[in-house]
Simulated assay, not measured.
Amino acid sequence: MPPSSDGAVERVVVLPKPLHARPAGQLARLAGRHKETTIQLVAGAKKANARGVLAVMAMGAVTGTEVTLTVTGPDAEAVADEVADILTAAEAVDG
């Protein structure tokens, strides 16, 4: 989607695998590299700021969960693409 009038970019992705520690950590690192950008994730009734690994994991998003991500700030379009790539490349938890 193109940026909205407030500069926010929204994407909806369906998780191919559960959202666990590795992709949550990747999201937090991405958010850390883009300090002026806000990355919000929503799965069902649960929301999380991508800067918080535990908050992302606490969403309990499993395979097939639809996650809406909203990115605001500089380079929101590119950051949203990176977030979507991380979420759709999530690897399964071993064990």
Rank of each mutant, 00 (worst) to 15 (best):
M1Q: 13
M1V: 14
P2D: 14
P2G: 14
P3A: 15
P3H: 12
S4L: 12
S4W: 08
S5L: 14
S5V: 11
G7M: 05
V9E: 00
V9N: 02
E10C: 13
E10H: 15
E10W: 10
E10R: 15
E10M: 14
R11L: 01
V12R: 13
V12M: 10
V12N: 09
V13F: 02
V14A: 13
L15T: 07
L15M: 11
L15G: 08
P16H: 00
P16M: 06
P16F: 02
K17C: 11
P18W: 02
P18C: 03
L19S: 09
L19C: 12
L19F: 10
H20A: 07
H20I: 04
A21P: 10
R22K: 08
R22H: 06
R22I: 06
R22L: 06
P23D: 12
A24G: 14
Q26W: 11
L27I: 05
L27R: 04
L27V: 02
G32C: 10
R33A: 11
K35A: 14
K35R: 14
K35P: 12
E36Y: 10
T37A: 00
I39W: 06
L41I: 01
L41K: 04
V42W: 06
V42T: 15
A43H: 04
A45F: 02
A45L: 06
K46G: 08
K46W: 09
K47Y: 07
A48I: 01
A48L: 01
N49I: 06
A50V: 00
A50D: 03
R51T: 13
V53D: 01
V53I: 15
L54N: 01
A55P: 05
A55M: 09
V56W: 03
V56G: 01
M59P: 04
G60V: 11
G60S: 11
A61C: 13
V62A: 10
V62E: 13
T63Q: 15
T63V: 14
T63I: 12
G64F: 13
G64H: 14
T65A: 10
E66T: 15
E66A: 15
T68P: 00
T68V: 02
L69F: 11
T70C: 06
V71S: 06
T72G: 04
T72M: 04
D75T: 02
E77A: 09
E77D: 10
E77M: 07
E77L: 08
A78T: 02
V79W: 05
V79P: 00
D81F: 05
E82V: 01
V83R: 04
V83P: 05
D85T: 13
D85W: 12
L87V: 00
A90K: 07
E91H: 09
E91M: 10
A92F: 07
V93F: 15
V93C: 15
G95P: 09
G95L: 13
